[in-house]
Design a protein around this nucleic acid. Structure first.
Lengths: 346, 346
DNA sequence: TTGTATGCGTTATCAC
DNA sequence: GTGATAACGCATACAA
């Protein structure tokens, strides 16, 4: 049988009311008795019964000590990415530090039909950290019942707290890094739709006085994952039909193997002839490329931690106005970039 | 105010006892009244209060409707692998289908000191699916309080249910696949410690009557992730100083980029001169290599699903004797293997 | 088969 | 400040 408030009350020779007050650290309790109660709790290894608590604490903001990590409408290819695990781990670590627990759930509105995930239905959570956003009205309504933070999703309602990967500063930092190494003509190769990345590119190029040339920007639909290692040939072809080809290329990790290949086909060596920087720091990619790829780590773990921290704060102070937090990435240097300010050593 | 059993009882003009019995589908309740109760529940959108339920159902085997996914003593490099996400997703999917929820938690006995994870402490779970195993006595004791399944860990107590990746059949299948394509001399390059993999290799080689040559087995400590793309040079060197070098190599995805490189250094082409098969089907690796790497998918998602299913069964029938389940992987064919039975086409 | 009454562990509302 | 006691929503032993 588990030890209850009654046991504590007996042991400390006080009433159950007092025990309860200590438990909720109410101010109105004599310090001498409080000590007795605390001692008794420790001695008997008292663990308040959460079910009994939840039953009465209907006014409490934080009833359950649980928050949900909800992955919404993501294809498996995304769900199984390593960064998803990092988000989750970051959240979990922060939530655990705060003495709370995470429920992991997925929600695919298409395949689940109208079914609302159980976590939202049964209400045994104090808040939600969501990756993605529902597109049905009914889905939005259910989600809106809880305090929530959205994880790095492009389209989130403006009245929603969210934690974003700072793509703009990420690309900006890449450009600045290359510039500091003497690169003036930097190409940008990516999928369409990453406006903030492109923004970061343009800002940095202008700000640092680098070559402005729309031809350096190669944006087109690329299959992810790549279908073939020649999927990026078009980009290199376009770039090298420019009057002055770039000395460096900015792209995404997933594309860099094909970029390496296309470059090699033209007899161009990385980093001797062309420098390459990837994005996302996908370890399985970066380390296995030859040469290993310098890449921008988006800091998914940090994003998760920040989101958890923000959610707990939001739960504690619901009236605070919502805000967006941007998490900066960090460039991980490997061997795919050449310092042009150093004279040729070959 | 939420709707309770009392409301239902009134609406259906029965007693709360009857309502409760319907809720727990007790056999002893008149079908006519049962219909009335069910109708009332639907109409009032009755949602039983779990806290109140949990408080009373102390005899119930399954109190909480929650199970824990506990990742124990794993370095971040492992935790952030894509397959970890697949394990978790598989578990989650199965658990959700069964109308239950997953709590995700991590436990690092070193860095957490003696702290036992909250999920185990507060007991709001019906069981645990663990990746890894505690090494402290106190840790083992806490874990032993719950029904549990261990996920693919090398050293688990024999009285523990567990779901394993079937390395032996995985490697066996790779060898058999290569043999079916006319390969007789197959090399095995891996880290030490994977005895079952080696076992699978030896069995297959014997069974299929392939060349037995200890020189084909190259097992040595290799840094993960690779430090340099020449980290596997020794293996290829050893293999090609054999009187008869292999026509195919079996290794792990992580090592194959370096194997490709070492092969290329010797002027050997994949797959024309040497076929290569990886292990784990790490998408970020396999797709970006040139040529794309044929690899054995361990079926982490399936492992997760099987574990969840097994745990639920174990909870329902605690007396059943424990067992190990082996999940077979599936070879994903890409372009790194040559069919030797087809005549040279170049 | 059905209804009634009691208990679960805690918090909240009273009096003192 | 403190202690007694009534709730909370449900399950169940017992009576009918």
């Amino acid at each position: 049988m588990a030890v209850t408030v009654v046991d504590i009350a007996k042991k400390a020779t006080v009433s159950v009311g007092t025990v309860s007050r200590v438990l909720n650290n109410s101010p109105s309790v004599g310090s001498e008795r409080k000590q007795r109660v605390l001692a008794a709790m420790k001695e008997l290894d008292f663990r308040p019964n959460r079910w009994a608590r939840g039953m009465r604490k209907d006014s409490m903001r934080e009833k359950t000590g649980q928050i949900a990590i909800l992955v919404i409408n993501r294809p498996n290819t995304d769900l199984h990415q390593a960064y998803m695990m990092q988000y989750i781990h970051g959240v979990q670590q922060e939530i655990a530090t705060a003495g709370r627990k995470c429920i992991f759930a997925t929600w695919n509105e298409e395949s689940d039909g109208d079914a609302i995930p159980l976590v939202l239905l049964d209400g045994e959570i104090d808040g939600v950290i969501a990756k993605g956003f529902p597109h049905t009205e009914i889905g939005k309504q259910w989600l809106s019942r809880y305090p929530k933070i959205i994880l790095n999703s492009p389209s989130v309602p403006s009245d929603c707290d969210c934690v974003m990967v700072d793509y703009e500063s990420g690309i900006h930092d890449c450009v600045a890094y290359l510039a500091s190494l003497g690169h003036h003509r930097i190409a940008f190769v990516d999928l369409p739709g990453f406006h903030t990345k492109l923004l970061g590119y343009r800002h940095a190029v202008n700000e640092l006085g680098l070559d402005v040339d729309e031809g350096l920007i190669q944006v087109r639909d690329i299959p992810v994952p790549l279908k073939s290692t020649s999927d990026l040939d078009w980009a290199i072809e376009n770039l090298w039909s420019l009057p002055k080809p770039p000395t460096a290329i900015l792209s995404h990790d997933f594309f860099c193997s094909a970029i390496y290949k296309a470059l090699a086909n033209r007899g161009l060596k990385v980093p001797d002839d062309v420098s390459v920087i990837g994005y996302d720091n996908v370890l399985a990619c970066c380390g296995t490329l030859d040469p290993p790829l310098t890449s921008m780590d988006i800091g998914a773990f940090e994003v998760g931690k920040a989101a958890a921290k923000q959610l707990l704060e939001h739960i504690a102070n619901p009236q605070d106005r919502s805000r967006k937090i941007y998490i900066q990435g960090q460039l991980v240097e490997r061997d795919s970039v050449r310092d042009l300010s150093i004279k040729e050593t070959t």
